[in-house]
């Protein structure tokens, strides 16, 4: 069992990191190869002046308050806030987890900053609660259930099982060694799967929403279109 632990800790961890980073770079290159910049076309008419545009607006204070009106922050605020918190935590927790960073220090000699174990423990519990919430959504909300397929369950378990096993291993609830081996295996499996399964939305959320021209692109600056 110790051999397996060493294998997962050493070469397999390195391979999973390389596959993950390589996959991300491949997807980024693929995106930029398949999109092109489209400039705003020259308009033969006249564009309105700033003053003219302002005259259509409601009073300034109301305009400020309704800045997010029409976006998901106003149409489904609770889910947007919850899912934002979840996504931030799910990425922050493993990066700033003390045990992970000790392993990195032992292997490569660099010590990334860590949060205290208490905080990351709370984070993990929150993430697992979110897991239960998403499970509830997938099973009981008809609008989510109707589009849920095998790939979604794969995504679900790929994300939450490493957290669950990590939590159980940290608190030594079941036998420690098998649990930590399972945790390492699942975590590495998730890393490898990120660029190639539905989890690639981690990359494309930023690429699509920042670079593509769309009504909903962030800061209205996206200027790329698909080839």
């Amino acid at each position: 069992m110790h051999q397996l632990y060493l294998l997962l800790r050493g070469p397999l961890a390195l391979i999973s990191f390389i596959v993950f980073i390589g996959g991300v770079i491949y997807q980024i290159i693929w995106f930029f190869n398949n999109t092109k910049v489209q400039e705003i076309p020259k308009n033969p008419g006249l564009l309105p002046s700033k003053k003219e545009i302002k005259s259509f607006y409601p009073p300034e204070d109301i305009k400020k308050l309704t800045k997010w009106e029409g976006s998901v922050w106003s149409t489904q605020p609770y889910f947007t806030i919850l899912t934002s918190i979840f996504h931030i935590l799910v990425i922050l927790t493993p990066i700033f987890l003390l045990a992970h960073n000790i392993l990195i220090k032992q292997s490569w000699g660099i010590a990334p900053p860590s949060l205290s174990e208490k905080i990351t423990d709370v984070f993990t519990i929150v993430v697992l609660c979110f897991g239960a919430y998403f499970l509830y959504r997938r099973i009981f909300l008809s609008k989510v259930r109707i589009i849920t397929g095998g790939g979604d369950w794969l995504m679900f378990f790929l994300v939450f099982l490493p957290y669950l096993t990590g939590f159980l291993a940290y608190h030594q609830i079941f036998s420690y060694m098998p649990m930590v081996i399972l945790h390492m295996f699942l975590g590495e499996l998730m890393l490898v799967c990120i660029p190639f399964t539905r989890l690639k939305h981690m990359i494309f959320f930023f690429l699509n929403r920042f670079y593509l021209k769309s009504e909903y692109s962030f800061f209205k600056k996206g200027n790329r279109v698909w080839n």
Binding site: P58, P59, D61, I62, L65, T66, E69, G70, S74, E215
Partner: peptide, 22 residues
């Protein structure tokens, strides 16, 4: 034309609501 769909109706309604609330 992003002028009067469901989203724009929502935006106008919210602006009017805030205006009259004020």
């Amino acid at each position: 034309c992003l002028g009067g769909g469901q989203k724009e109706v929502g935006i106008l309604n919210e602006e009017l609501r805030l205006y009259y609330e004020k």
